[in-house]
């Protein structure tokens, strides 16, 4: 076999093994690549942070995603919840998928164990699973009365009787709806909740969906977005350097890598837990895999051009 053929026809099992090593090694031995934050992530962080300590404002997190996308989206779930619990921001959670309801339970219990003072139905309220078919009535109904539209929380308690609901009426009390999903669910919130009631919407998406949101970001229909593991890693970093240190967000500081590095050295133990660094560790593996895929693409193309040159010569 010619050299050009050989580099174009590497057995896919060899590619798989090399890829496996490239994924596993950075997960075991942390490379510690830097995380650079981007505008859509910073905007979402700032938007949520703006209601820190307010009793009559909350964010609504929609967990309409299934376990298949957890590696990318779960770090976002944890990072946003940690931000809210750290900065005393009220949170509502909901899912229109049954699996999403279980993910809410997982995420809430995982973050709550580090915040013993946070109380269910006082600091946050889990609306739980609501059938897909009730999505439209709930999205529209919350514009008038959240307690009436959602009716009960995940434990079956009437919302109107819960302490957290005493200062909450409708979308006027929702700072932002954060849709975390591997689908176009965020657009439903734009069509039904934003267009009619003006509530702000943001999304957390898998990387393959991230390119779809740019028209919505430019038009302001999404106030921010977290694109894939990279978006989650950026949010983790913002929570670490600002929320964990009790600091207000500053774009200038977030982009000053020397200042960021200095903040990392003073982080509390809580921020160093594996669960709150998952996305950044994952990004090390992703960076290596991206380079590897580029290498394979270039290798294939070198073979292709060598082949073409040989063909031209023989003609």
């Amino acid at each position: 076999m010619k050299f050009s053929d050989r580099i174009q026809k590497v057995d896919r099992r060899i590619i798989y093994v090399i890829l496996l090593i490239a994924v596993v090694l950075p997960l075991v031995f942390r490379l510690g690549f830097k995380t650079y934050t981007t505008t859509p992530v910073e905007n979402l962080y700032r938007h949520i942070d703006a209601i820190a300590g307010k009793d009559d404002m909350a964010i609504l997190m929609d967990f309409t995603h299934d376990p298949g996308v957890l590696p990318e989206l779960y770090p976002m779930d944890l990072a946003i919840l940690r931000h809210c619990f750290e900065r005393n921001i009220k949170v509502f959670t909901i899912s229109f998928l049954p699996q999403g309801a279980a993910i809410i339970q997982m995420a809430l219990s995982e973050v709550k164990e580090d915040y013993p003072n946070i109380e269910a139905n006082v600091d946050y309220c889990n609306f739980g699973f609501k059938p897909w078919s009730t999505k439209l009535p709930i999205m529209l109904g919350m514009g008038d009365d959240i307690a009436e539209a959602v009716e009960t929380n995940s434990e079956g308690l009437k919302l109107e009787n819960l302490p957290i609901m005493q200062n909450m009426k409708n979308y006027d009390n929702i700072q932002v709806v954060v849709e975390i999903s591997g689908s176009s669910m965020g657009q439903f919130w734009v069509i039904y909740a934003r267009a009619k009631f003006g509530v702000d919407v943001a999304v957390g998406l898998t990387a393959v969906m991230a390119a779809d949101v740019y028209p919505y970001l430019q038009s302001g229909q999404f106030v921010g977005s977290l694109g894939g593991l990279k978006g989650a890693a950026e949010y983790e970093q913002l929570v670490d350097i600002f929320a964990m240190n009790g600091l207000e967000f500053s774009k200038k500081k977030a982009r000053d890598m020397e200042w960021v590095e200095a903040q990392y050295e003073e982080l509390p133990e809580l921020a160093q837990l594996y669960k709150y660094n998952k996305a950044r560790i994952g990004m090390d593996a992703q960076a290596i895999v991206h380079v590897l895929i580029i290498f394979f693409i270039i290798l294939g193309n070198i073979g292709y051009f060598l082949d073409r040159r040989a063909q031209k010569k023989s003609m």
């Binding site: 896919r12 590619i15 290798l299």
Partner: peptide, 13 residues
Amino acid sequence: AFYIASAAYKAFR
């Protein structure tokens, strides 16, 4: 990830 890597190598010319 594995399929994408293999497909990109084989088809991206």
